[in-house]
Design a protein around this nucleic acid. Structure first.
Lengths: 161, 161
DNA sequence: CTTGACATTGAAGTTAACTTCAATCTTAGG
DNA sequence: CCTAAGATTGAAGTTAACTTCAATGTCAAG
């Protein structure tokens, strides 16, 4: 299939697909006689993986490391390791979510118990300090964690510094 | 406290703090006689909220809407609404995580049952198509959802075309 | 055989979220 | 008093992730 069709099917722009190829996320597409890129249906899967990972907070750089351009290159053991880590991630997130939810419900009960008579400002501050950091942070950290072990070189930019 | 101290305590750079102020995330700090910014300990809390929200995938623009510069301005009802939506978010994520985990474990069992004799490429493709999209997407969507109702104008940039 | 839709390329433009710079001011310490 | 650390400002620079542009090529349809 040509790039236009792939674009339509994937919901991405052709320019974006070309950009992914040029930045090494997609392995160089084979060409038709005229020079047009020629994609197999597999490309659709790869694109979906890339955009999903992006939505989960991975940078293209991280995705490049996570999903080697050649899909079929994955090593059995690496694969299993990745899956197992993913399960652990999920378990950790579940635990944190459970705690967060309990906290939120407690706070809600607090607030609803005393409608108007309580100082709203301090309440707000207390609540916000709890709500936002806790489960959002947990989620974000779990979701964006680049890759546990492996590749010691390649210093990555800290988000906070 | 002066900006340097706040920077040290928050772990952010002074320039970043000034940037947040100039872009309306932090309410304009009061000034000492000499013109130096003067922060109350509250500023530390606000900064923490901002960076936490950021880590959860909110853009500064979204944070601006979510956390009005003046912490004490929050309305009782709005607050409760926000908290309740947060609980719902958490519940939705928990559900999706549970499903994702079950799927992952199933896949792991599949793979480990037949060590080497199965075509690794197709296995990899099947797995990746499952793993990455499912729970990562769920997490990301829940975490980055801007704000359910309210503010109809202010069209925001779609992430995917 | 010409039009129009779609393809190619490299280069330049865009937005978010900062950082860095340069020039100037304030202030505590030796 | 002088110096060095830290404060101020506006403006310019940086990186990621794309998009837009311009100039040109391909091809099916009328």
């Amino acid at each position: 299939m040509k790039i236009g069709e792939l674009a339509k099917k994937s919901g991405l722009t052709a320019s974006r697909i070309r950009f992914y190829e040029s930045s090494g996320l997609l392995r160089t597409a084979s060409r038709q006689a005229n020079g047009y890129r020629d994609y197999s249906p597999d490309a659709l899967v790869v694109l979906h993986i890339i955009t999903s990972a992006q939505q989960a907070g991975f940078s293209l750089d991280e995705i490049r490391n996570l999903v080697p351009a050649d899909l079929s290159q994955w090593q059995h053991d690496e694969l299993i390791g990745a899956l197992q880590r993913k399960v652990q991630d999920i378990e950790a997130m579940q635990a944190r979510l459970a705690r967060s939810k309990a906290q939120l419900i407690e706070i809600l009960a607090d607030i609803e118990a005393k409608p108007d008579d309580v100082d709203c400002a301090s309440n707000a501050r207390r609540v916000l300090a709890q709500v936002l950091p806790v489960e959002m942070k947990a989620v974000a950290e779990a979701a964006t964690r680049p890759k546990p072990s492996q590749q010691g070189r390649n210093l990555r930019s800290r988000r906070l510094g």
